[in-house]
Design a protein around this nucleic acid. Sequence first.
DNA 1: TCGATCACCGTAAACGTTTACGGTACTATG
DNA 2: CATAGTACCGTAAACGTTTACGGTGATCGA
Lengths: 358, 358
Amino acid sequence: MSVRYQNRTLKAAGMTGIRRLAQHLDISIGTVSRALNGRPDVNEETRRKVLEAAAELGYVPNQSGRSLRQGTTNIIGFMMQTGTEITGQGDTFFMSVFDGVQTVFARHHLDLVALLCSSEEDPDDYLRRVVARGFADGLILSATQRHDARFEFLAKRKIPFVTLGRSLTDVGQPWLDLDFEGMAQISIDRLVARGHRRIAVTRPHDDINLGHLFVDQSAKALAAHGLTLDPDLVFSSKPNEAGGYHVAQQLLAKKDRPTAILLVNETIAIGFYRGLSEAGLKPGRDIAIIGRQSPQSHFLSPSLTGFTLSRRDLGIALAEALLATMPAFSHFYPDADLRKVWPEDLVEGESDAFSLPA
Amino acid sequence: MSVRYQNRTLKAAGMTGIRRLAQHLDISIGTVSRALNGRPDVNEETRRKVLEAAAELGYVPNQSGRSLRQGTTNIIGFMMQTGTEITGQGDTFFMSVFDGVQTVFARHHLDLVALLCSSEEDPDDYLRRVVARGFADGLILSATQRHDARFEFLAKRKIPFVTLGRSLTDVGQPWLDLDFEGMAQISIDRLVARGHRRIAVTRPHDDINLGHLFVDQSAKALAAHGLTLDPDLVFSSKPNEAGGYHVAQQLLAKKDRPTAILLVNETIAIGFYRGLSEAGLKPGRDIAIIGRQSPQSHFLSPSLTGFTLSRRDLGIALAEALLATMPAFSHFYPDADLRKVWPEDLVEGESDAFSLPA
DNA sequence: TCGATCACCGTAAACGTTTACGGTACTATG
DNA sequence: CATAGTACCGTAAACGTTTACGGTGATCGA
């Protein structure tokens, strides 16, 4: 004899979702749901049958119904802006980070999606929409501004999030960031030891926080040697190849040209090299360069001296830091690094071989 | 006197969503919903008040509730795989395409998200999950395989989708693709006119369809001149810088070295250049190269002769082709290009200057 | 034999929307 | 004045889940 199904008899046609599955097995939808969700109060034999039938019929719970009921989506959003001029970071960077993030998320049946904020929309507005619509259980933010309104907005609504990059706006959220202090210190020590005194640095043209950090830490590292960072030698640029090219032009136009330069990001090195070579100058012979490695920069000549990191590991750490702050998952990551500057290794190339007589 | 609200009196505390808004205005939730959704049967004065209050209280309809009821999500997914080695497309290619897609979607209140399939998960399985969960109203697929099982799967379920790249699997869906025939013909004509007879081509190492197309069309263009494509001169490579470097090494190891080469994608040029220069060879002087332009390739020296396209326009066309097949939007795009090979312009550089005596 | 405990399962409410349906008050028309 | 029509609005069902609650039959101990 068949059970009845919440206002519908077995004869009712066109059943969908969990009802169809329950009908097929002639048990109630409650039991099906419990079986699928791994609840303890269901017979193991029943559970086996349910899982089997689910696989057979290709049943996957409807996300809308599920999240409407639970208030949870099993989705984590990685917010990023489209339009290359703004993001700067080539997308292979994020693709590698994503891969790390997902190896962690997969363990918890969480899905990662990239929330693409159009370059024509205000990021704050976009975030507001995403949150109000109840789109994701947690967020990963990048391209953090020096003062970032998104932080307070999320904190007020108690949305778990982690950021790739610190900010002066601190609401207690976890973050990961690059070790600008370490990079600046190693770079400056190395250049000063080779006799350099006039050292230039680059920074992104916008108010992204890493620019401030990079300049500040470079100045600090110079101060340790009794040197000061000449404001005239801080070059702003778009974080892409064209930006690097432009920096080279600006630098070459200076009367008292610096003998060394620190490049803040991976992509500008390519344009900078080109700018130099058009003027007949050669990295490592006429000027010392320390930058950051990327898949592209491996093919520069002379080879670039620069810092490198595992993007995949960075993604893993990012995911763990986020989950550590989410009540449902925190017990899995009792001692995750909630705030960490990510160490980078210096790969020695030829671009900083240029040294000055003592 | 206040209205009652579907089993709840005004005194009920903790109202959320549309109920809270209705309570605030002292009207029914039905009217609020109608007002917000632009239904005709609502007083304009009422509508004004509702919109005002919604803005004031920051109300945004809950996505789960809405899509559960309507069976629609207002989300379009762009499926891509994480892990740089697989996606291949270096740099900011997709970010630019996205920007174009979104300018179209924004007009219809559709949101674009990138569905990130982990490199550890089978793309077909991933797609199955996404569809069954009812995640998106439509999909954009890229990295189309020569035979792509995803097409049939989506067609069977009547999920609207468009692909960036043709496939032998044709289920009648719209697609956009690069004009390999045009590119091959222009390139080959140009090289043959400069006396080249042994011309090499590259192709991606996997079964992605564009590789087959590129090789086939190149062979066809050669045949028009009475030449054949030597299978020994078809080089497979990963679609990144390292792949290009590897191709150079393979090519240089050949006894009867080709005098010209066509590079299938944007990123490999950088590695290929490097491979040549390490062997003391120079593009345009010792071998003729025709490739594809990218933000990076602008900084190659000697300058690359290559094809270029507007990625943003490509994104716009992609979005329009998709919407043209979705019943709710098709009337906006009565004469969209449903299947189109995208023309590319040839930018003349120095890399193909090398010519042979007649 | 009789409660009590237990394992398992069915019932129905609830999540936040949208929308078909019907109702009410007002206007127009004869 | 009666009727029809109109403009607007409230009601409640429905979407597909999850889960608190209660119910049933079996087992077990005294």
